[in-house]
Design a protein around this nucleic acid. Structure first.
Length: 108
DNA sequence: AGGGTGACTGCTA
DNA sequence: GTAGCAGCCACCC
């Protein structure tokens, strides 16, 4: 556990994710544009380097292909399955491949 | 101070 | 439709 302090940029990312309503998801690109970064990779970095899983609903953040990305620094594993279940509990249904089943859940 | 990485995206073959 | 390459920004060593 690094327990390092989040930077201003990361803090902005968490704030934007926290603004995502329940039952909705946002893509890295849209999130990056909302932050004014223009680079979705920077957003992914912020999430990967930060174990704020329960503090920030990072599971609501998906890639432009409407697929689930990673969780807690892992791209695949039981954590991903947990994320899908968590989203399903919020009303967002995903495919067995981790793809968004309902495009209407995508926040623009 | 410099180089390398990445939970990404977009275009081209 | 799948595969590969380049661009991009922020963080880490």
């Amino acid at each position: 556990m690094k327990n390092r302090q989040p930077t201003a940029f990361e803090h902005r990312v968490y704030a934007a994710i926290s603004e995502i309503p329940i039952g909705k998801v946002m893509t890295y690109k849209a999130l990056a544009e909302k932050l004014g970064c223009g680079s979705s990779q920077a957003v992914g970095q912020a999430l990967k380097r930060n174990p704020n899983a329960p503090e920030v609903p990072c599971h609501r953040v998906i890639n432009s292909r409407l697929e689930i990305a990673g969780y807690m620094g892992k791209l695949e594993g039981d954590e991903i399955t947990l994320k899908l279940e968590l989203l399903a509990a919020e009303g967002v249904e995903f495919d067995s491949c981790g793809k968004l089943n309902d495009e209407a859940c995508l926040t623009v």
